[in-house]
Amino acid sequence: MTVVELGLRERKKAATRAALSRAAARLAVRRGVAAVTVEEIAAAAGVSPRTFHNYFPGKEEAIVAPLTDGAEAVIAGLRARPAGEPIWESLRRVVRDVLLPSGAGGGVDTETLALLRTVKADPSLVARQLCGLGEMQRRITEVIAGRTGTDPSRDLHPHLLAGAAGLALRTTVDLWADSGGTADLPALIDEAFERLRAGLPGP
């Protein structure tokens, strides 16, 4: 298989995963998690249930995937930032870019807001989301270690940075979602990372 063919294959797989996760999220928001089946998700995405299971072990993982599949974008963003840029600034900018793509205005889209509310109301989805975010944090830790010249097998530094950045991301998005999407998400992101950079001074 050539490099071009391999690239096309990987893009097709990514597109199929995205289609399945979007279908799962929309069905869960519309009908509730308990009423959604793998067969319905697969049909909505135009694939078979067998294909579904090539990408996700169950419907819960597919439903939360739009909220946990951002690792690649974060990793690519961190690698693209200037080498001499302070790591907190790099993390802040990357989180903003991932959460606020061009044209998103003051917040993420209404579908994501509805999905966040659905996930928060279902303990099984919260558990799956935390597992997915944990894997994202592990991968981001490795990139931060490369940027900071630390060893993730021995040093706390990259783990603490990745963990704090992940907490900032989750907290700001939760506050934004709890406000019904009316809070200023860019301002929340900036404040969260500035407070972390300053060592969490008192209010």
Rank of each mutant, 00 (worst) to 15 (best):
M1G: 10
T2W: 03
V3R: 15
V3G: 06
V4Y: 12
G7E: 13
R9P: 05
E10C: 04
K13A: 06
K13S: 05
A15W: 13
L20A: 04
S21D: 02
S21A: 03
R22A: 05
A23L: 07
A24K: 02
A25G: 01
A25I: 07
A25K: 07
L27G: 04
R31D: 05
R31W: 10
A34V: 06
E39M: 03
I41W: 01
A43H: 12
A43D: 05
A45Q: 07
G46T: 11
S48N: 10
P49S: 09
T51H: 12
F52Q: 04
H53S: 03
H53P: 00
N54A: 10
F56N: 00
F56K: 05
P57E: 12
K59E: 08
E60D: 15
E60S: 02
A62V: 07
V64G: 04
A65I: 05
D69M: 05
D69P: 02
E72V: 12
A73P: 05
G77C: 02
L78Q: 08
L78G: 06
R79C: 01
R81E: 08
P82G: 11
A83R: 15
G84N: 14
E85S: 13
E85W: 12
E85H: 13
P86S: 14
W88V: 01
E89F: 10
S90H: 10
R93W: 03
V94Y: 02
V94H: 01
V94W: 00
R96G: 00
L99A: 08
P101G: 08
G103M: 09
G103Q: 12
A104H: 12
G107S: 10
V108E: 00
L116F: 08
V119A: 05
K120P: 00
K120H: 14
K120S: 11
K120R: 15
A121F: 07
A121P: 04
A121K: 15
D122A: 10
P123Y: 13
P123D: 12
S124M: 06
L125I: 07
V126E: 10
V126H: 10
A127L: 06
Q129G: 05
Q129V: 03
L130G: 12
C131I: 07
C131V: 09
C131S: 14
L133C: 09
M136Q: 14
I140E: 04
T141K: 08
A145Y: 12
G146C: 06
T150H: 14
P152Q: 09
D155K: 15
P158W: 10
P158G: 08
P158V: 04
H159L: 04
H159T: 01
L160W: 14
L161S: 09
G163H: 11
A164G: 11
A165C: 04
T171Y: 15
W176K: 07
A177S: 10
G180M: 06
G181E: 06
G181S: 09
T182M: 07
A183V: 06
A183W: 13
D184E: 13
D190S: 09
A192K: 08
F193S: 01
F193T: 03
E194T: 04
L196W: 14
L196E: 03
A198W: 09
A198N: 12
G199C: 03
P201V: 06
G202H: 12
